[in-house]
């Protein structure tokens, strides 16, 4: 029984990162109608960013977030201007298809770039407090991962407030719902796209940083994290940041349950199976409101 609870706790902890990983993808998809399959690679880059800041400048990984997030914002803006600004001009159907292809090319290039820059080895950031654990009734809770879960929740909450309360947040939601109507109310829709893409990239960067502390990064994690994020988006639907976070937690728990029930190798399967079933069960309703 303790072993089971232990598994579930660990599942919940990584589930927070799934939620954070999915939040950015969901925002970009919901607003731009662009499916960025290189989202996992952006997470990977965030992880390496934090790793570099630690290795080269001695930054604590959590402190590195204060640099990784603005850096990722800027990188997201550049990516939008150079690549996705071209894609959003097309009609919505071609838009999704082309974005898939562009994201795919981007993923490939970033994977190869990461191998050149950081080699194919797994990296993770070790800190003086890396091994710290609190024990609750025989259940061990790694402190770093707990802090990551809390931070993930806080970041998602922050973006939620940004979208709910601010002028541009409202503009981004309006654009997501009906971009022509948004134009008619005087919203510069392309700027809303840019903001949403940059924020989505920043969320990916933050997720990557947290992954590199509690877990590990390597050039090959991109596809894996894109799939995790896609699964959560499919489970949670578009349009609600808190919903996405909960979706992430659910995936983390489901994975833990599968690993406990069928063995470790089946951890990866459960999400994909859920994903496929939900996708096929609601092929149109999924991303429509």
């Amino acid at each position: 029984m303790t072993a089971f609870v232990q598994q579930m706790v660990l599942g919940l902890l990584i589930g927070g990162l799934y939620g954070l990983a999915a939040a950015g993808l969901s925002l970009v998809f919901g607003v731009l109608k662009v499916l960025n399959v290189a989202h996992g690679q952006l997470i990977m880059l965030g992880g390496y960013g934090a790793f570099w800041l630690g290795a080269l400048a001695g930054f604590d990984p959590f402190a590195a977030l204060t640099l990784v997030i603005p850096g990722a914002l800027a990188f997201g803006a550049v990516l939008y201007w150079t690549l996705f600004a071209w894609v959003v001009r097309a009609s919505e159907e071609t838009r999704v298809k082309n974005s898939l292809l562009i994201g795919f090319g981007l993923a490939l290039a970033l994977d190869a770039l990461a191998v050149r820059l950081w080699t194919a080895d797994e990296r993770s950031i070790t800190t003086s407090y890396a091994g710290a654990v609190v024990s609750v009734g025989g259940i061990a809770i790694p402190l770093v991962r707990l802090a990551s879960l809390v931070l993930a929740g806080a970041l998602i909450g922050g973006v939620h407030l940004l979208l709910a309360r601010t002028r541009w947040g409202r503009a981004i939601r309006a654009t997501a719902e009906d971009w022509e109507a948004a134009l008619l109310t005087g919203i510069d829709v392309r700027r809303a796209y840019l903001l949403a893409f940059a924020i989505g990239t920043a969320l990916a960067g933050a997720a990557g940083t947290l992954v590199s502390v509690g877990y590990s990064v390597s050039p090959s994690i991109g596809l894996e994290w894109t799939l995790k994020a896609l699964v959560v988006v499919v489970l949670a639907g578009l349009g609600s940041m808190p919903g996405t976070f909960v979706g992430g937690l659910v995936l983390g728990l489901a994975e833990a349950a599968a690993a406990w029930g069928f063995g470790g190798p089946y951890r990866e399967m459960v999400g994909l199976v859920l994903f496929f079933v939900v996708l096929v069960a609601r092929p149109q309703g999924l991303f429509a409101r």
Partner: peptide, 28 residues
């Protein structure tokens, strides 16, 4: 028969998931 209920990009990501399911199963 099942996957073709999905259109466009959803067919793409659905088949991506299917491929991964098979790869992981065989690997296991």
């Amino acid at each position: 028969v099942v996957a073709f209920r999905l259109r466009g990009a959803y067919f793409a990501i659905g088949t991506l998931a299917l491929g991964e399911i098979l790869r992981i199963t065989v690997g296991n």
